[in-house]
Write a protein that binds this DNA or RNA. Structure first.
Lengths: 270, 270
DNA sequence: CGTTCTGTTTCGGCAGTCGAAACACTGTTT
DNA sequence: AAACAGTGTTTCGACTGCCGAAACAGAACG
């Protein structure tokens, strides 16, 4: 149980309040360990039981977690609902996208997702699930890489050079046999993406998943998100592919316009 | 407003980790003060600027808040989306209720809400908004009293005696002229509610709001939530009232059955 | 009726937190 | 341009309240 914390790694002091950081770590652990007891959560967060107990007590006071007094287990509380709902309401991007996603999912009969970039990762900020019983598991708030998959590559293609550099200078994890791993090849792919305005990615994150994505722009013309449809490759014929692509492009265009984007004939800069 | 917290000093030591508690207070303050800077949030939480800054920094590290580097303002982050979405997904009550709420809202053309009791308060855990431009403002995660309003009174009528006692022994706040304030009268009203199986409340929480509610039961027969429709009193004719009531009763019954409840002709006793 | 899990409580030492105040920065006013 | 009035950021030392360890208490096995 030698708890050697990495926060001590020599360098400058940061503003991190460790007890708060541990509490948040615990809260996020609760997402993946619902209905767990003190001991299990203590193991999941690599903290002591006493600390975990105190943190849970504190979080419970504020309604972030809820304790089942019978079974002595903890779950996310109703304050978490409040946070989630309000952060959604406060995001113009998400509220605008919701009906577009619903429409896109209905037309394609597959999952429709909205992804944004945060640092060198993508995050799913909204989604509408496929009506089919067999569908890709995806969830709002989940993170992933930028270099593999349809939506992620859209985001990477329109990210600042510095971000692209950070991504390719790290190890490009190969999730499948067709995941991009060569930095130079990836760079030229990104260029193609910028020109074509969409991505069709098959089996890059998982061998059985395809993804078709397009960029979403706001009033300033910046790419602020990626709109993507994903599903099992088994349902992807050539016909369907073209159909989904046109729906995705139409939806991305519509969403961009709703956000204030106007196509500019001349993107002229000297 | 009336936030007389427990005595901070002196009596019984609790397990509260104050830094975490303050961080949560800050996080919840961010719900009502989106896009605020350090100073404003420090004032809202009655903390010092330095503490607020450090807490925000820590929360940002975990993605709970997001900082706009340009404007130096803070908003709820994407981890909040994750928490909200997951806590919804993890709740069988909520996932089951969602389509019922959508249906109820469509049929009545008013807000449809699902409320649960937590201690001596009610919390809205799910809702579907009215299509009308004029509609009651309500939001998931918001709390309120148990003694006034349709849904709240349903919850109170089926709460343990101890809870009822706590509620009536406190001051029964009068939100409007027709809010119940007399403990004895309230007690007999609760008895009527248990017998009739619904509540029609007009102007108890706000003079211009009506609410029609019914109890939701789970497999054990316990009342676990209240299903309610609310809207502006101006839209409530006698006809409409009866119509909404029947829709609410039907929806509550359907939701209860989806949760495993079965009407028992004879209540067995040992 | 032990055994072995749980969750809860206590306690003291010292790491970590926190307030105050200085600092840096940006935009506005004179 | 210089003074000003706001921000947000950084430093620092004192002291407090956090945290790990270990004891305690209940429940759920066998």
């Amino acid at each position: 149980m030698a708890r050697s914390k990495e926060a001590k790694s020599g360098e400058g002091a940061s503003y991190l309040v460790t007890s708060v950081d541990r509490a948040m770590q615990l809260l996020l652990a609760l997402v993946d360990h619902p209905d767990s007891g003190v001991t299990e959560l203590a193991e999941a967060t690599q903290n002591t039981k006493s600390l975990t107990f105190r943190l849970l007590y504190t979080l419970e006071q504020r309604g972030l977690v809820r304790k089942d007094p019978e079974r002595r287990t903890y779950t996310l509380g109703y304050a978490a609902l409040l946070l989630g709902d309000q952060s959604r309401q406060q995001s113009r991007l998400i509220t605008t996208a919701d009906p577009v996603l619903a429409d896109l999912s209905a037309k394609t009969e597959e999952n429709a997702l909205l992804l944004v970039r945060e640092g060198v990762q993508h995050i799913c900020v909204a989604m509408c699930a496929s009506p089919h019983p067999l569908r890709i598991f995806a969830a709002v708030g989940r993170k992933g890489p930028l270099h593999a998959g349809g939506g992620p590559k859209i985001l990477l293609a329109h990210a600042p050079d510095e971000v692209v550099h950070d991504v390719v200078s790290g190890a490009l994890e190969a999730f499948t046999e067709v995941s991009p791993t060569d930095p130079d090849a990836l760079a030229s792919v990104l260029e193609v993406i910028r020109q074509e305005g969409y991505v069709i990615s098959i089996g890059e994150l998982d061998p059985n998943i395809f993804s078709i994505a397009a960029p979403v722009r706001d009033a300033s013309g910046e790419v602020v998100a990626a709109l993507a449809v994903n599903g099992p490759t088994g349902r992807l014929s050539d016909d369907i592919r073209d159909q989904i692509l046109s729906h995705v492009l139409e939806a991305a265009d519509r969403l961009s316009r709703l956000l204030g984007w106007r196509e500019r004939a001349d993107i002229r800069i000297g």
